[in-house]
Design a protein around this nucleic acid. Structure first.
Lengths: 253, 253
DNA sequence: GCGTTCTTGTCCATATTATGGACAGAACCA
DNA sequence: TGGTTCTGTCCATAATATGGACAAGAACGC
């Protein structure tokens, strides 16, 4: 598949949109878009302002930051919701949440990012709620991202990690660290992070593959570190692995 | 506001996306996109296939039709849902639905289209369910579209109707008919269609304006024609007008 | 069967379009 | 005050997107 030519501008506009999406409601300053896309400032400026005229991007009056606009969800209404994955995963998430009691996330891969698409809050009184539905991060910086990378061929994973290099700085990590974590996850059979994105939390993630063997998503448990000692880590991982296989079945059938 | 230059390709890609969005899950054949956008076929073909590579568009294997892809709702997750309008309108829709008993729609304007964003089913046993959330139509072909056009300055309304000319054929209407209906709606104070998009139905729509006087949405009741005689039309219109003002208050405050 | 009309896909010379270096203003800090 | 961030704009230039022309497959009629 040689990439189709004659649409540089469209590809660039989409790259910009994906960066803006990572900024959620608050949006992203122009300079950051310039840095992370590697495009020149006049180009990004032009793209962003055309997208504003078209209603695809909005600009916050106070901060001057750029964010995903109204028309994007409007276009999204054209698709049936919720997605097949969400339907297939629902019973598993419910079971796992009840069995574990800590916060549970379902995260998909989209391009070079992870995107949280579902979250279940457990019964345990201390819950890690830092990641919300819609949260978008470069593949590799969260345990879910590491799990998804671990589930794909090494070459592809390295390519993605290399592509995300510029964005890792903001999360205080780098290519070598991420690749190390990916290797560790392959050995373990699941992704794990002693130090979560939030201080004092720990996360465990299992990957979910589509019938053709591509990793499609990850299921993650996050909890305060003290609640996930070695013994409980084992328990939680077993539940997650079982339910991940169940979701794979549900997609495949 | 002179439109910004240097982004023809991006604008064209968005025009294509909006047409595809009107096709919902089923999508739209390439030829129809070519017709309604007025672009040449090689151009549309290139745009659509680049968007497929980027995950923004999907192609149905069986039919060959093109439709909005997975990544659009993924980008949409960056925004908080539901929208402000939906929140503001909720109590009014609930009250109106209870009072009227027929199917109620909330429709917004997006570009040159109307987009159904909410639907409430009433208690009366015969309900008009042809329009679903996500349904997208050229402004002017539904009573909601006529109401929204009626609420804007004549010049702007004429511009939009002219821009939609090519798309009217598919709905068996034309510029003159639509402009006539808009004028009638202005006189009446609400939009009305004796012949709905579905045979034997009748619709009544009131417009909802933002604080700056721009029409933002329309509230519509659809029912089988026999259920909306002159007397009941009055009643329903009064309720819709009252609730439309309530929603305007809720947005403004 | 064979022509007709619909569709989608591809090529490539061309000119239109997007590009980005250079310049400039605004806001903030020391 | 000068230094450092940010955002916005201009315009000559090169690279890019464009669309006419050609091709091939699918559906229909007879």
């Amino acid at each position: 598949m040689e990439p189709r030519q004659g649409a540089q501008a469209i590809r660039r506009a989409l790259a910009v949109l994906r960066i803006l999406a990572a900024g959620r409601e608050d949006g992203v300053p122009l300079a950051e878009v310039v840095r992370t896309t590697g495009l020149t400032r006049p180009t990004v400026h032009r793209i962003v302002h055309v997208l504003i005229e078209e209603g695809i991007v909005e600009r916050h009056a106070r901060t001057g930051r750029y964010a995903i606009g109204n028309q994007v969800p409007e276009l999204a209404l054209a698709r049936p919701r919720p997605s097949r994955l969400l339907i297939a995963a629902n019973p598993s998430l419910q079971r796992a949440s009840a069995a574990i009691g800590d916060t549970l996330f379902l995260t998909v891969r989209t391009g070079n990012d992870t995107l949280c698409v579902d979250r279940r809050i457990g019964v345990y009184p201390i819950q890690v709620l830092s990641i919300e539905v819609g949260a978008r991060r470069p593949l590799g910086v969260s345990s879910a991202g590491v799990a998804i990378l671990a589930a794909m061929p090494g070459q592809e994973a390295r390519k993605i990690v290399a592509a995300n290099e510029k964005r890792f700085e903001a999360y205080r990590t780098d290519v070598a660290t991420v690749l190390g974590e990916v290797t560790a996850a392959r050995r373990l059979g699941y992704g794990m992070r002693e130090i979560g994105l939030v201080q004092g939390t720990k996360s465990i993630s299992t990957w979910i593959k589509t019938p053709d063997g591509q990793p499609a998503a990850a299921m993650t448990v996050s909890a305060v570190r003290t609640r996930l000692g070695p013994r409980r880590e084992q328990e939680v991982a077993e539940i997650l692995l079982r339910e991940a296989r169940a979701i794979e079945q549900a997609i495949g059938g």
